[in-house]
């Protein structure tokens, strides 16, 4: 039997949305637990510099999130990181989250599980495919890499890889044009050792000595060609972390949670916040707004519920 831990409010996911919700819930005197699969901070931990966060002209993403976590912990929120969720019960009046170690119960829950990078869908024997340039970029000093994806992440991460000493970057983008911000594109294009090919997709990657052989397809004429690179970095967007909620919480066709104006889901006492919600704009500031609203709505739900019902 796992040890049971009982709370007013459970929050699943410790990114900006979940941690903001925790701050508002704790200040509303709700006994709150925040359950995080990896480390608190979420996607912002992967962002080298955040330059659109009011109050900071420029700040490292991980540093920003460490400050938010300190505030959450200071308010007495129970924070459980590296917690693997094994079972969820969301439909009944008492919400349950069973992790590898504990059984958490709450009268309400906020789902703030965010998004994760989309993986390349290719069968390959290569171990040179990466999704984190901070983690793996240093291994490619003086080497040539392929960057897949011409969005903001692809351009930002390419600039970071160059700063680590990567000697040559080939970037491919499936669309006709790269959609990254013009200023970032200009900064990368100013480097002589960067080649960008649009209308180009990766169709195969095979291990080749210390590096890999990549097959690229030109979508304008369906011609394929093969290039050797030392490693591949993939930045082709994000997908919602909603697999555990499928079939229980209403999702849109892309897997995002459908929520009302107060971030209520189809289930009573279940709220959603942040990037995981179906919406047009996904930023730290919009995640904070969601976290605020979801926490206040959950607090009202608990306050209004007839005694003994939740």
């Amino acid at each position: 039997m796992k040890q049971s831990r009982d709370f007013d409010l459970l929050i699943l996911g410790g990114g900006m949305a979940g941690m903001t919700a925790a701050i508002f819930a704790a200040r509303a005197n709700l006994k709150t637990a925040l359950i995080e699969e990896h480390a608190c901070g979420g996607l912002a931990n992967w962002t080298n510099t955040v330059e659109n966060f009011p109050s900071h002209v420029s700040i490292n993403g991980m540093e920003l999130m460490e400050r938010v976590l300190a505030q959450v912990e200071n308010l007495g929120v129970e924070v459980d990181q590296a917690a693997e969720v094994e079972r969820l019960e969301l439909a009944g009046p008492l919400k349950e989250v069973e992790t590898g170690e504990y059984l958490y119960t709450g009268k309400a829950i906020i789902l703030a599980t965010g998004r994760q990078p989309i993986r390349l869908r290719l069968e390959t024997d290569s171990d040179r495919i990466h999704y984190c340039s901070v983690c793996d970029g240093s291994a490619y000093k003086g080497k040539k890499v392929l960057v897949v994806g011409g969005g903001n992440s692809g351009f930002d991460e390419s600039l970071y890889l160059l700063s680590l000493g990567v000697s040559q970057i080939l970037m491919v983008e499936a669309l006709k044009e790269c959609c990254a911000a013009e200023t970032t594109q200009d900064r990368l294009r100013a480097h002589g050792n960067v080649e960008i090919r649009t209308c180009t997709t990766v169709t195969a990657i095979e291990k080749d000595g210390q590096g890999c052989r990549v097959t690229l397809k030109d979508r304008t004429n369906d011609q394929s060609r093969s290039v050797y690179v030392d490693g591949v970095f993939v930045f082709i967007g994000q997908k919602a972390n909603t697999l555990p909620f499928r079939g229980v919480v209403e999702l849109d066709r892309y897997g995002y949670i459908v929520a009302g104006p107060n971030l209520e889901t189809n289930l009573p006492g279940v709220y959603a916040a942040g990037d995981v919600v179906q919406k047009d704009y996904r930023y730290l500031t919009t995640a904070m707004a969601d976290g605020t609203i979801a926490a206040l709505a959950a607090e009202k739900y608990l306050r209004d519920a007839p005694a003994g019902e939740v």
């Binding site: 480390a39 590296a82 901070v134 983690c135």
Partner: peptide, 13 residues
Amino acid sequence: KKLCPNCKALEKM
């Protein structure tokens, strides 16, 4: 590495 997100997650584990 200090600012590596996966290192941070592994440290929590």
